[in-house]
Amino acid sequence: MLKIDNIKTFYGNIQALKGVTIEVSEGEVITLIGANGAGKTTTLMSISGVVPPRSGEITFQGEKIHKKSPDEIVKLGISQVPEGRRIFPGLSVMENLEMGAFLRTDKAGIKEDLDYVLDLFPILAERKSQAGGTLSGGEQQMLAISRALMAKPKLLLLDEPSLGLAPLIVKRIFDIITKINQEHNTTIFLVEQNANMALQVAHRGYVMENGMITLVDDAKKLAANEEVKKAYLGI
């Protein structure tokens, strides 16, 4: 479904990605783990078209997307829950959700998805006219995921959804991610530092170091891999 082929991405003169190749099949949950500054967020931003790669190719459902603008990419069915949630602080919860569906015109479909996310996270219905900036961290993460779902994505990119959240909420978020994958057959690309959690929900995993992929394997095998254990699982 998504094919990232040897992409190299730069911030000015600094090279963040030194030839990254990742493949994701339809219906899969894959995770990209790695230390701070390895290039995980950059990978997602390259897919979304915010920081386009300088060379290499990204193909989504047979269509080359590495030269497309972010809104065209969203339109094709890729939406992202960025690191730090990035809720629009001055917009109400409802308006934040509306912005997620910005490119859609099918009113009935939007209503249906709105009901779905409010059912997934009932707390958002309670907070619906509150400003996004006044929500707690966990609620903001729920809103960020809901906002991305409002675009009706075929591929959902999640950047560190567990960051800064209480363990109990992290567990809930991950349960929901699994649920979204199973109920909607939404393909999920999960970037995480919490490798433990990520490898539990993912089918396959990639390990990234210094802008390069160093390991690819089934999630279970990765979790059992001695090097991964030592470096990322703290065992």
């Binding site: 979304s48 078209g49 915010v50 603008s69 972010p70 809104d71 969203v74 339109k75 939406s79 992202q80 960025p82 990035r86 629009f88 602080p89 001055g90 917009l91 308006e95 509306e98 912005m99 997620g100 910005f102 490119l103 906002r147 675009a151």
Partner: peptide, 23 residues
Amino acid sequence: TKMGKAMRASAQDRTMAMLAGIN
């Protein structure tokens, strides 16, 4: 209006507005 909300969204977080599909 939707345009107005998108304007506010872009003012609050331009990158996120792009990620939401706002041109």
